[in-house]
């Protein structure tokens, strides 16, 4: 009974605090769930099934998962009014420049904005990789939801050559070198 009371005491007094609950209690009105830069890497044998997706880009063209099969793909979920997304944009662009010619694909997924707003953002930060506009139908968000879901804004996912999510960064990329290392690891994996 004492043990029960103790467990209950913890449960009721809410001693178990985590960042998700803390964000809610803060009531900042920032209107998105932030991440703390946590990196999750999944070993090859534990990865879930390849993700199939199709989305409409800012340019009006369609991007599908088939376009990126056999290549490493970096997917970044963002929107223009999200402060950490703005802060990490230069790092992402730098990584894109570094790996563009090594066959790595970069795809932004804009989860809130309309096309023109997204395009202005890209101009501000000189982003040259494409972004899909996902606010109206949520197709890409749905495709990537699952076990290793994008659970914060921004979220950066590394998709391996077989189309499986191999790593995830929740929240702003704290250091470009982290993303660099994750891409490198994915690139070094054999194609088999």
């Amino acid at each position: 009974m004492f043990a029960l009371a103790l467990v209950l005491a913890f449960a009721v007094s809410g001693c178990v605090s985590d960042s998700l609950a803390a964000q809610y209690r803060e009531g900042s009105g920032k209107n998105y769930i932030a991440g703390d830069g946590t990196v999750t890497e999944i070993t090859a044998e534990n990865r879930a099934a390849p993700v199939d997706f199709s989305g409409t880009l800012e340019s009006g063209e369609t991007a599908t998962s088939a376009d990126y099969r056999g290549r490493v793909l970096v997917v970044n979920f963002w929107y223009a009014g999200c402060a950490p997304c703005r802060a990490e944009a230069p790092d992402l662009q730098a990584m894109w420049k570094k790996y563009e010619n090594l066959g790595v694909g970069f795809l932004g997924v804009n989860i809130r904005d309309r096309t023109d707003t997204a395009r202005s953002f890209s101009e501000t930060f000189g982003i040259t990789y494409p972004s899909a506009i996902d606010a109206d139908n949520g197709a890409l968000q749905l495709a990537f939801s699952g076990v290793i879901a994008p659970n914060a804004v921004p979220t950066t996912l590394i998709v391996d050559k077989k189309g499986r999510v191999s790593a995830r960064i929740l929240g702003r990329i704290s250091d470009a070198s982290i993303l660099d290392a994750l891409i490198k690891t994915a690139l070094e994996e054999s194609d088999q």
């Binding site: 998700l20 964000q23 809610y24 209107n31 998105y32 769930i33 979920f77 989860i111 949520g138 968000q141 939801s145 879901a149 994008p150 659970n151 914060a152 804004v153 979220t155």
Partner: peptide
């Protein structure tokens, strides 16, 4: 998904 919520 948590990505899409305003608050949670």
């Amino acid at each position: 998904t948590l990505l899409a919520y305003d608050s949670f």
